[in-house]
Simulated assay, not measured.
Amino acid sequence: MHPNKRRDLVMKAIQEDGKVEINKLSDELNVSPMTIRRDLVQLEEDGKLIRTHGGAVLPKPLITETPFSTKESRHTEQKKLIAKKTLPFIKDGQTIILDSGTTTLELARLLSARKDITVITNDIKIAAELLDSQLKVFITGGELQTNVGALYGPQTHQFLKSIHVDMFFLGAHAIEMEAGITSPTFEKSLIKQLMIEAAETTWLVADSSKFDQKAFSKVCDFDQISGFITDEGISDDQKEQLSHYIKII
């Protein structure tokens, strides 16, 4: 079979399923896995797909900032279950950072019944949720990002550089094996990086819809976090890839 004909069949398969696996294509097209790998390399260079561990996926547009009202209505049940699974990791007497986001907001709602915990956040929605709790709450300060509820800017940076905490619960806009964890802006990434630096340990809390997505600015690689708490929508292949770097719950 001519290489162009074979690559057309590869693209037809990936357009139908959104992804392909090297071994499956090798069997279906009766060629070696190495031949399929070469085809995927060429198709990636042509901008038609993105190679993954053991296969390839269709390229996706970069993730942009999403208003709070939109994020709040997406994957609500998954976020609540992630928050519930995260709660036992937080012990009395600890100081934690909650990143801005709707998954961390669900965690704040569960924490509101606790007492001996200090919470630091750059999210006014999270701070408002803890208004009537018995927790000690610090807000980073900074300029308000309207429609999102996050605080940012030099005041936020200065605050985060001056603290040290037990744990940081990191929210994510996008997660991808090669790109790592990314966010829509340099500013968002910088704040998350400062939070990582301020914490003894960092846990990523994000639903599976964030996986196989890329945003504009790099936050960190997987080796900078201790683990990832997510829902069961993550595939076995994704679990296997991630397990080489971090603990997955």
Rank of each mutant, 00 (worst) to 15 (best):
A206C: 09
A172H: 03
L170R: 04
G180W: 12
T156E: 08
A179K: 14
E187T: 06
H157C: 03
T201I: 14
M177E: 14
E176Y: 10
K188H: 12
K188A: 12
F169K: 12
I191P: 02
L194W: 05
L160V: 12
S183L: 02
I191L: 01
D166R: 06
M195H: 02
Q193H: 13
F186H: 11
T185Y: 00
F186P: 05
V205I: 15
H164T: 09
T185C: 01
H164D: 12
T185W: 00
S162E: 14
A198L: 13
M177Y: 10
I163F: 02
Q193I: 05
A174D: 04
H173D: 15
G171C: 10
L170W: 11
A198P: 06
T156Q: 02
S162R: 11
E200A: 04
S183R: 01
A172C: 14
A199K: 02
E200Q: 14
F168C: 09
G180Y: 14
A199F: 05
E178A: 12
L170M: 15
L194T: 10
V165A: 03
H157K: 09
V205G: 07
A174H: 05
H157T: 13
T201R: 14
E187G: 00
H164C: 09
L190I: 11
M167W: 02
E200D: 06
P184E: 04
L194I: 07
H157R: 11
K161Q: 13
L160E: 11
Q193M: 12
E197A: 15
V205T: 11
T156S: 09
D166A: 05
K188P: 01
S183K: 05
S189Y: 08
E187K: 04
F186W: 08
E187N: 11
L160N: 03
E176K: 11
G180A: 06
I181M: 13
A172E: 07
L204W: 02
S189F: 03
I175W: 09
K192C: 10
D166L: 06
S183D: 02
T201Y: 07
Q158Y: 00
M177T: 15
E200N: 12
L194Y: 14
L160H: 08
I175F: 10
L170Q: 08
Q193T: 04
A198H: 13
T202L: 10
M167H: 05
V205E: 09
I163A: 01
E176P: 12
P184T: 00
S183E: 02
A199W: 02
F186N: 05
T182K: 04
M167D: 03
G171I: 11
P184S: 00
T156H: 04
E178W: 06
A206S: 15
T185G: 03
F169V: 14
V205A: 06
P184M: 09
F168S: 08
I175E: 00
A179D: 07
K188I: 12
I175L: 11
L160Q: 04
E200H: 10
G180F: 12
I163R: 06
A198T: 10
G180M: 13
T201E: 14
Q193D: 15
L194R: 08
H173C: 09
I196V: 13
F169Y: 15
A199N: 01
H173A: 15
W203I: 09
A174Q: 06
H164W: 12
K192Q: 15
G180H: 15
D166T: 13
